[in-house]
Amino acid sequence: MKPSSEPIFWMLFGGGGMLSALIGPVLILVTGILVPFGLLLPQDTMSYDRMLAFAQHPLAKLAVLVVISLFMFHGCHRTLHSLHDLGVHTGTGAKVAFYGVATLATLLTAGLLLVIGF
């Protein structure tokens, strides 16, 4: 029996799960509810200029990349395995497609973060 390549994806899945459990709800609360409704925080907290300045900081770039990438790997892995649980036969093609989407999202995010400059 050859060793499974699953540890790579499982670690990305686990990292994404940990991160989403820790900061997912807070991110939704802040960016989806508090700021748009002007509760506790002024409505222009997430104005274009502020967000651009935020995303131009190297540490913020790293944070944004890690959050988007790990969330994507977590979601794709979970969905792929849930399909299997539901009896949908998922072979190598599905693996390539699902992890491909997560990889693509990671690369796109990294690219965009570089394009907007420092």
Partner: peptide, 16 residues
């Protein structure tokens, strides 16, 4: 390790 590390080992489980 061979049994554990295989696709049919611990990685066959989805923690139902």
């Amino acid at each position: 390790a061979e049994v554990i590390n295989a696709d049919a080992g611990v990685w066959g489980c989805t923690l139902v």
